[in-house]
Design a protein around this nucleic acid. Structure first.
Lengths: 204, 204
DNA sequence: CCTTGCGCTTGACACCGTGTCAATTGACAC
DNA sequence: GTGTCAATTGACACGGTGTCAAGCGCAAGG
């Protein structure tokens, strides 16, 4: 099996990710990817039917590499709802920069390619479930802010942590990743955790 | 002056807005706009050099119609910083649905057309200044949350109120406009306004 | 009345990027 | 050797933007 099919396939995927990340300035063409992978443009089509399919595969490939599951699992270990929220935000915030290149490409395709939209929605659905789990833990502790249903709270957290918000704050407004993380943790806490009148300490 | 130049120009702009709004499902082509305006595709180019330029003009046209300035001016009238924040969120939240069609088209172009990106950034800059003004009013009252600089607070509010967040919450997650407004006002307050629970904390 | 100006029309075309197709090459396997 | 199969080269269709040239129709105005 020296002339292995999946060998080239991997090279294409790697090249795709490399192009997406390095050439941050967008507009990654099939020919760019082919060149980066050291093959002809047409050869790419022997492995992936469309650009959208390739990008989708690239995200899956990226997931395999980055082990997103393991990362988010850590947040599940936290005991209190509040700790869990904090851990979840941290895990996700660390994840975004790594997937940003692909995410952006997929997002750009979203409005014209149903499959790409589908792929992205799928990931966002996973993400939403993570949010929901954190919110539920909060609710279990009786710490969920008043005036928000669990669904609304999940939606809100999910929105707060969106890739586009990360993009706005770090790319457009120039926040450091560290500042982003700190402020988003704090904001998530303020938005989702019940305001405790006076009784006990303010932070844990 | 019956065969007036700016007459057709207006018709094109109206048609553009109409297409953008009605055909919510994206992909508004130059030919679509031309057809809607009742002229040939080429005639559109007699008035606007590129699609991007047309979209930009369309946003200006929209502003003229919607009187966004007047709308936001109301928020400036509020006395306290907190009231001002609330009014600003309300004004902006009401504005988004009206500009959404154009905004989405412009946003979709952003990554491939510098001019479109420019037009959008310009508006977002205006918006940012509105956020900053609200934050400043808050700070003047000594009500700005601790741990946030005025710039950071403005960035945060600006992000919170982004069109994409509105899209996520109302379009994707199905929130009603009313619920969106209420929850965003509450969230903005929680994130930006100093937590005054216990007057017995580290003090300045 | 006929000319000039001009907004608009028709129709053709270049460019770019995606996706398709056909014929060919070259290597490894049996 | 021959068959198989990945990959190559080169051509092409398509859709959308933007350009160009020629012509049409209407109103003003000498």
């Amino acid at each position: 099996m020296s002339r292995d099919n999946s060998d080239t396939e991997d090279r294409i995927l790697e090249a795709t990710l490399a192009q997406l990340e390095s050439g941050g300035g967008e507009a990654v063409r099939m020919s760019d990817i082919a060149k980066a992978a050291g093959i002809s443009r047409q050869a790419v089509y022997l492995h992936f039917p469309t650009r959208a399919a390739l990008l989708i595969s690239a995200t899956h490939h990226l997931d395999r590499i980055k082990e997103s599951d393991a990362r988010l699992a850590a947040s599940r270990a936290a005991t209190s709802g509040r700790a869990r929220l904090e851990a979840f935000v941290e895990a996700w915030a660390g994840y975004i920069p790594e997937i940003y290149g692909v995410a952006k490409a997929l997002l750009a395709l979203e409005h014209k390619d149903a499959a790409a939209a589908e792929a992205w929605n799928e990931r966002m659905q996973d993400m939403w479930e993570g949010c929901e789990a954190a919110v539920r833990a909060l609710a279990r502790d009786g710490d969920l802010a008043e005036g928000l249903s669990e669904t609304e709270a999940s939606d809100l957290l999910w929105t707060l942590l969106s890739v586009r918000n990360w993009e706005l704050l770090t790319r457009t407004r120039g926040w450091s990743q560290d500042r982003y993380l700190k402020i988003l943790q704090e904001s998530a806490r303020r938005v989702l955790v019940k305001e405790q009148g006076c009784p006990n300490r303010s932070d844990g």
